[in-house]
Every structure is written in C-alpha cells, then in structure tokens.
Design a protein around this nucleic acid. Sequence first.
DNA 1: AGTGCTGGTCTCTTTTTGAGACTATCACCC
DNA 2: GGGTGATAGTCTCAAAAAGAGACCAGCACT
Lengths: 140, 140
Amino acid sequence: MDSSLVKLRSRLEVYKAMTDGGNIADCPVRDVIQGLNGKSSSLLTAALAEQPYRFGELRRLVPDISQRMLTQTLYDLQRDGYVHREVFPTKPPSVEYSLTELGRSMFDALQHLLQWAENNHDAVREARAGFDAAGLNPGG
Amino acid sequence: MDSSLVKLRSRLEVYKAMTDGGNIADCPVRDVIQGLNGKSSSLLTAALAEQPYRFGELRRLVPDISQRMLTQTLYDLQRDGYVHREVFPTKPPSVEYSLTELGRSMFDALQHLLQWAENNHDAVREARAGFDAAGLNPGG
DNA sequence: AGTGCTGGTCTCTTTTTGAGACTATCACCC
DNA sequence: GGGTGATAGTCTCAAAAAGAGACCAGCACT
C-alpha cells in the first residue's frame, strides 16, 4: 500500500505538469474519468457488464434517466470505445448495446469503486448528516 | 473474476429496485458516485492522498479549476466525509485540507480507476478518433 | 385508419459550471 | 500612516449541461 503511495506522488506530478502545460486532454484523469462522469454512466456500464441490453430495456432498468440523457450517455460511452451499438433490422428495428473489450476492462477497474460505494454508503450518509447538523449549529 | 460477475447481477437488481422505488438516494451508486463526479474531485482526492494541502496550493496544483468550484468541490468532499478541513489562526489565516480515513479508503478504490485511465488513455483516444472519423463518413 | 411498439430527436426550463471581480484582515515597506 | 501583497474565500453574470416531456417515423396488428 505504501508503494502505491510512492507511485502516486510521481503520477500526481505528471497530472500537474500536464494541466500546467495547458493541454487538459493530456491529463488521463481529466480526459478519461470525465467521460465517465455522467450521472448514469457507471450504472449503465454496470448494466451492460451484466449482459447486452436494448435501448428500451436500459430505460426501464434505470428509470430516472431521461431518454435524451440515455441517448447521449450511450453515445458518449460508444464514442470512447466502451460500448458497442448494433442495429438489428427487425420491425420495428431494435438496437442492442453491449460492452466492448475496452469497456469490460474499464469496468473491472470501476467495479472497485462501485463495491466501495455499496459497502460504505451508510458511512457517507452519516458523514453528511453529521456535517449538516454541525453546520446548522456552528456556535460552539 | 467470474464470481464478481455473479455478485454483480444481484447488485444491479438492487440498484434497479431502489431507483424503481423512487428513492434515488437509496442507490449507492447514484448517491455515492455522484458526489465524486465533480470535474476535479478525483484529482483533488489524488492530491490530498499524497499529503495535506492548503487551499492556494490546491489551486496551483490544479490550475484549470476556478476558485469557486474548488471551494465547492472541497466543501462537498468534506460534507461526504472524505476530507477534513482545518483552519489555523495564523496571519493571514490558513486552511489545510487532508484526507480522512473514509477518504483514504475511498481513494484506495478509486485508485484502480485512475490507474486504468493512465494505462488506457491512448486506447480511449484512439477509439474517439476512430468513432469521429467513421461518423463523418458513414456511407459504407 | 387508429394504436402500440421500436428508438430516438426537439424544445423549454432548471441546474450546474466557469470566469473573474470583489471582500476582509493583517504584515510589510516606504 | 497609507499602499501592496498574501491569505481564503464569496458574489454576480454568462454559458453550458441536464431534466421533462412532447413529438417523429416505420411498420404490425386490429
């Protein structure tokens, strides 16, 4: 674990140098992670890691996403190479979305964070509650 | 790896049930990950995982973030329990931000994704380039 | 001919983000 | 004793992103 911290230091300097240079696209974190930052990107990737899904299925699976955002998020995931989109000439035509190899590889890394979120959801909620309560009564 | 896929299926169903029920806050992915989705949250967490930093230092470390967003992102990270904020009554007063235990734990999970981003930055860029090129010339 | 399914797009409104001017306090310098 | 610089922010205005939901087009079924 300490060794990863050592690696981290140099990595951070790389990030800094790159953003410092002006070209943000050269910073992997900004460039890659930002593409995953959509409000439902993680969830959709998780769904597609399970199995391929069609547009309408994804919509039902993640009901609080608007069609517009679902379209756009899938488009972005496809553009970044995580998702494959295939149109079947049925009547009416159906569209199937699936994870590419790159997408599956990315999801393997993302999964750690999803797992953490699940394990620590309560801790985060408690932190929020405590913070808000303290904020309302700052007069110590 | 396959066993994690099995776990995933049931997990996804939990997500679905929870968003389906209407209360999005009960879905760990939406609730936790969304708090990390800020454009620079990952980068700031990475910086603070290295060592504590002061406000101005963070601003210089991540130059393309506005003061306003830096303030707000740090506030959000603090509220979710990842970051500790300490004011020192120097003249002028200085404020130091550091990772809490929870934040460090979260970063351990996040780090996989950061590492992946670094390793696969080129692949993502190529995917984008290929997608855009194909999009301009769709007539097959 | 009307209804439903498919996978979207278009418009309008609200929310989020970005850029950057402005605040307040105190040490230092002249 | 007044201007300058450092600290860590806040405030306002403009632009970008996201959400809600109406609308579109093609075809099967009735």
